[in-house]
Design a binder for these strands. Structure first.
Lengths: 204, 204, 204, 204
DNA sequence: CATGAATGAGCGTTCATTCAT
DNA sequence: AATGAATGAACGCTCATTCAT
């Protein structure tokens, strides 16, 4: 029996873990990680608080799995974009579009990330959040710098300010976005890109 | 001896509340309201947890005072702008500038507001947060609509999407802004407005 | 093995609430509700303070259950007496006897009731104490009035004074009564009734 | 300046103490000693909680003064009765009458005494409560025994039961008695004595 | 005499976690 | 896999008390 240290009886059903994590993510996103009790998650999932500990080591490990699953997927997408050899504007467009797709697929995880990552990143266990933050900055800031150098993005702006502007603008959307709403992620990305790139003022 | 500095023991009373509130706001902003213990605030302020209750009814009432003081000041500023009879573009510029000034003066309160207002607004005690939210939307959305109708803002954008875009763009700045940094609030406002209005792409 | 005594660990669950309530009642009666700490109850019951909250919502809900269980039983007894169609003297004798039986079965609850009911009755949660008080007065005062009208109780006494006299006289007994003492409840009732009805003076 | 260890400036006005004690007694009686906060007393007396400590050592010392002042007066009255050389029936009548007079003069103290004396008596500071209890029992029980021996009280009753009956009957009145009500203390005493001595049943 | 501000111990309660069944 | 009962640390808060002014 390859790749297994447990007997059949000991191996938890992997789908159950996934369901429980989805439930946990939903509750963490709605009420905040700290304000969410393990009992609340259990209620929502239809079992008792103690029973969650058969599936997970701790409340924190649920959070960990939720966030790292999200970031793994995010970087799969980002890395594909960055490896594609696009120009700065196309790269920016692809990153924004990819981001809205991730918001669509991992909305609770994104909301949790927004709210909690800053202080979580201080803990060793969540050091990967800080790593991700750095890679993130490198990808976006680099794209903006390349674009400014290439004359496709304005050079009169503080590039760090522009970076924060674009970054926050995209990700805060997770706080109001609801999957299945009026706009598809791609449509929202298109409008956001239009605003970010061209501005909201009418050109004379 | 004019302008003499008094020792802590000699300092008159009413300032104390203000100091304690400033400390509390700082800690709430750094760690989140729920994750902040009243002992932590007391430690930071140099007294014991129980002593805070001589000055305040509860942890919640500290939060209440912090948020309502901020919103009162914010609306003083906004109301002056809205009453000035500006056109849509000038109104938008003035609202953004005023917002960055408030972030400069009430950064911790703004950060707390960002993180907590959604769920706080459900409680009767914090109903004024929901009220403020509605007035806020009316002011910004109205300005954007007037501008679109007047031909100074683009009419091809979903105006609610544009509203969220502008709103989030401005207020998330509180999460990274540090007073006394490289840029004054007015300078940041100028650059943000430039990005929001003209976009970051070079015009051909 | 019939009638086998189980160890604590083997004992089934629902009895536990009852045991804990009995312990709580004993401590409330001995020290007063306010002066009783939840830690003291837990100590006496052999668990930690926090563990009580697995079984009960709050200290107050323990009090509530203790008092309402007592009053439910009391009124079962009283209602049976009042429905029996006795004359005034027999009714009085039956009420007194029933009261001493309740003191015997619920001594701690009666002691708590004596000490705390007056101020508890003001709280909505304990409104049933005030209701009970009113039914109580109706039952006893009505019996005394019927008896005075029928010529079996003295008519020269202030009937409200007589009511308080009989009522207090009976219930205060809970403060010194100890189950399993020299006299059975029925014996105490007999002597009390003799004193209340005939007086302690020798008739000439 | 005889009998004084304090200078004129240090000596508190004795009337103020009396007022404060009366206020404290009223609040203790209404809400119970434990449930009464020193702040509540201060509010009622029109000063701040800390200021009470200029007049009294502690909350407990207020209680102490209230109870001992009451017991001192009570025993002045009782001792006069016991020294008068009355027969058993006259002694009982005089003790009951004296008791109702004390209830009239010291109602709050009596109510406090009823509620708190049992557990206070365990503390060394309040040992005089236990002493008083013993003298009390000696006086009343002795009178009842003398009466039974002399043939003026019934000999067929358990004398300890009769003692508790008379004792409780009298003192519980403090829980409903309001000075200035429909009946004078002497009138209440007369009716109570009539019930206790002759009973409430009509004699055939 | 009284105030204003603080102390420090302890309270009722919550909650992540454990574990025998 | 899940339950039921418990643990133990921490939390928000109360309150008698102290003391410089």
């Amino acid at each position: 029996m390859p790749n297994s240290k447990k007997t059949a009886a000991e191996r938890p059903a992997p789908e159950r873990r996934g369901e429980l994590l989805a439930t946990a993510a939903e509750v963490f996103a709605a009420h905040g990680y700290n304000a969410t009790t393990v009992r609340r998650i259990a209620d929502e999932a239809g079992l008792l608080a103690g029973s969650l500990y058969y599936h997970f080591d701790s409340k924190e490990s649920m959070l960990d799995e939720i966030l790292s699953a999200f970031l793994d997927e995010l970087w799969d997408g980002y890395d594909a974009v960055l490896a594609a050899g696009f120009g700065p504007r196309e790269t920016l467009e692809a990153l924004v579009t990819e981001s809205f797709r991730e918001i669509d697929r991992h909305r609770p995880a994104v909301a949790i990330y927004q709210r909690e990552s800053r202080h979580l990143a201080r803990q060793p266990r969540f050091a990967y959040l800080a790593d991700s933050q750095r890679r993130f900055e490198r990808a976006w800031l680099g794209t903006l710098r390349r674009g400014a150098a290439a004359g496709v993005f304005r050079a009169d702006l503080d590039v760090r300010l522009a970076y924060r502007f674009v970054r926050d603008t995209v990700w805060v959307a997770a706080s109001w976005y609801r999957p299945g709403g009026a706009h598809s992620p791609e449509e929202i990305a298109r409008q956001y890109l239009s605003m970010v790139l061209e501005g909201i003022a009418v050109r004379e």
